[in-house]
């Protein structure tokens, strides 16, 4: 359902915003890695956040970074 999907992606967005209080918004196509909203140290927690929000179990050893680069890529792959 679109409304549920939007709400779950918002959980990921809210996690990012909580980590970066200097930010008030994140565009769906913003490069989360290039803009350093997610770095190597926070990536594991980020993946767990996507797992919890989507209910999809993610194989951490088989991740393609392209699937986590933007909120719209995450939504496309996991929601």
């Amino acid at each position: 359902m679109p409304s549920k999907t939007s709400s779950n992606v918002d959980a990921v967005r809210n996690w990012l915003l909580a980590k970066h209080p200097e930010r008030t918004s994140i565009a769906p196509d913003e490069d989360l890695i290039g803009s350093r909203l997610v770095d190597s140290l926070s990536f594991v927690e980020f993946v767990l956040t996507v797992e919890e929000a989507s209910g999809v179990e993610i194989d951490h050893e088989a991740i393609d970074l392209a699937d986590f680069r933007t909120l719209e890529a995450i939504e496309r792959k996991y929601f």
Binding site: F43, I63, D64, L65, A66
Partner: peptide
Amino acid sequence: FKLFHVTGQPLPWQ
């Protein structure tokens, strides 16, 4: 990890 020059992959911590 930086020695490997791989792209598109997250750091395989384990």
